[in-house]
Simulated assay, not measured.
Amino acid sequence: MRDYFLRTKRLGFSIWNRVDVKYANSLWGDQNVTKFIVADGKMSINQIQNRLDRELEMYNQYHIQYWPVFLLKTNEHVGCCGVRPYNLKENILEFGIHLKSNYWGKGIAQEASHAAIDYSFNTLGVNRLFAGHNPKNTNSERLLNKLGFKYTHKELYPPTGLKHPSYLLTKQDYEQR
């Protein structure tokens, strides 16, 4: 049984650890997920391990990460959702979510996102959240709009080599939704 530091009605947020390779492989090894994350559309085993290592290091250094998310009822891993540094000087974190494709369209993305955003503003005390999405990922665009993020600019995202639409969400805007 995993420990969850954050819960919603259906979901539990945990912390990545070294033995979570199977979860990392099932998430970032799914080309339906990675087609929007990396330029060639798929991650190698080494790239997946490097991604997991970066999440572990992020937690060790900043106590944040794209946390692994599980269904409370079954303990099934559904993906990850969380934050990472974006502009620490201005107290802005980057928000992101990656869900396994078999959990798309079930309201999990919105439920997890609300929890991570609320945690970021009310527990971590950030000023704003930044988010971006692959220009081909219209579902992410819809989600960010539903969550109250406001489009600001396009920004080059080196892993895809594309300029991603980019957004900001302030605590005030989030609370007024």
Rank of each mutant, 00 (worst) to 15 (best):
V38C: 05
K35C: 05
Q49W: 12
N75A: 07
F70Q: 01
G41H: 04
T74E: 15
I37R: 00
L52R: 03
D53R: 13
W67V: 03
G41M: 08
R84D: 10
E57F: 14
R84T: 11
Q47P: 10
L99C: 04
W67F: 15
E94N: 08
I92V: 12
V69H: 00
N32P: 00
G105T: 13
N46Q: 10
G82M: 06
L93G: 12
I97K: 00
I97F: 01
K100Q: 12
N87L: 06
N60L: 13
P85E: 13
I64V: 06
V33P: 01
H98I: 00
W104Y: 13
E57Q: 13
Q47I: 00
K73L: 13
K42V: 05
F70K: 03
Q65T: 10
N91Q: 13
H63S: 08
W104Q: 06
L88M: 14
M43F: 12
N46S: 15
L93K: 01
A39R: 13
H98T: 01
Y103T: 03
I97H: 01
L88C: 08
G41R: 07
L56N: 13
V33R: 14
S101R: 10
R54G: 07
L52H: 04
M43G: 01
Y62A: 09
I45Y: 10
C81P: 01
Y62F: 12
K106I: 11
P85W: 06
G96E: 05
N102P: 01
Y103P: 01
Q47W: 02
M58T: 04
Y66C: 08
Y103S: 07
L52D: 00
R51W: 00
T74K: 09
R51M: 03
K100D: 02
L52E: 02
Y62C: 10
V69A: 14
N102L: 08
G82T: 07
Q47D: 12
H63D: 15
I37L: 09
M43K: 06
C80K: 02
D40T: 05
L52W: 09
E94C: 10
E55F: 15
Y86A: 02
W28E: 07
K35N: 05
N102E: 13
F95E: 02
V83W: 08
E90S: 14
N102M: 09
F36S: 05
A39K: 12
H98L: 02
T34D: 05
N75L: 07
L72S: 04
I64Y: 04
W67K: 01
H98F: 05
Q47N: 05
D40R: 14
S101C: 10
V38W: 00
F95D: 03
N87C: 14
N102V: 05
N32L: 11
E76D: 14
W67Q: 10
T74R: 09
W104I: 01
N91A: 09
R84W: 06
G82L: 04
D40I: 09
T74P: 06
P68T: 02
Q65V: 00
V38S: 01
I97R: 07
W28G: 09
I64D: 06
R54V: 06
G79S: 11
W104A: 02
E76M: 11
I45T: 12
Q65K: 00
L88F: 11
